[in-house]
Amino acid sequence: MSLSKGEKIFVGIILAAIIVTWLFSLPNIGGMEQLSEMGIGTKWIYTFGEEAGFFTRINWLTVIMGGIICLVVIIFAHGVSKKFSMIPNRKQSAVELFLDFMYKTVEDSITVKEYVKPVFVISTTLFIFIGVANIISGIPGLNVSVINGEPHFSLFLDTWYTPTSDLNTNATYALMTLVISHAFAIKVKGFGNWIKSFFQPVFIMFPMNLVGEISKPISHSLRLFGNIYGGGILVLILSYMVKYLILPVVLWGFFGMFIGLIQAMVFSMLTIAYIAGQIE
């Protein structure tokens, strides 16, 4: 494989940046005697109000990074739509290919034609947000862990914080999917038939169907959360063992980008499947 002059310079800059970062963070790594000192699995949570409770806690990074991802996606979409033409450029073709693929997938699953577009919008939006969030979990950047009750900022020792590694984000989307699927079901079948669907095939199956429905958002959200959060911790531990020399890049690529994109796809597929199952 031969590289052009520009590519060689680019690879050189990247390698130099990795070496400089590694040298810069070496004293930091050497100081960690135990894994527990790395603050693995801890989250930077701000509590306000007099009593700490469910509604008085905020995970800063989830809110900030969620907002940043939304902004990045909106800016990208604006950039593509501004130069929309009959003969597409690279960006436009990529976006059209992706949207076409998603539309066909939804069209295959949803039998009621008038619901194809709303389901396409919901599932594609979820895929884009979760996909971008998971991809940044494969890129080194700023992350915060709490050590001895104080936030500890680390640059390039870990990847960007991803909102999908917080169960609240995934549970929100999963609950939203559940509510939307049942709202669509009531609209398509009517309220009476929707209630009847819980008592099928026989009346005794009601508790089983009910537990099955309640457990859908749990399995839906935990699958994504487990993959991303578990992947992040695994990479941190393995990186610590080799002192951030070679392995993290490969692992970040695998867990962040490959597994992350697959899980984003699976999440939106399940969204389509749950809605399709309800409005059949």
Binding site: V211, G212, I214, S215, K216, I218, S219, L222, R223
Partner: peptide, 11 residues
Amino acid sequence: GFTVFANMAVS
């Protein structure tokens, strides 16, 4: 697998 686990958790 996830379905079995989630159902067990809820139940």
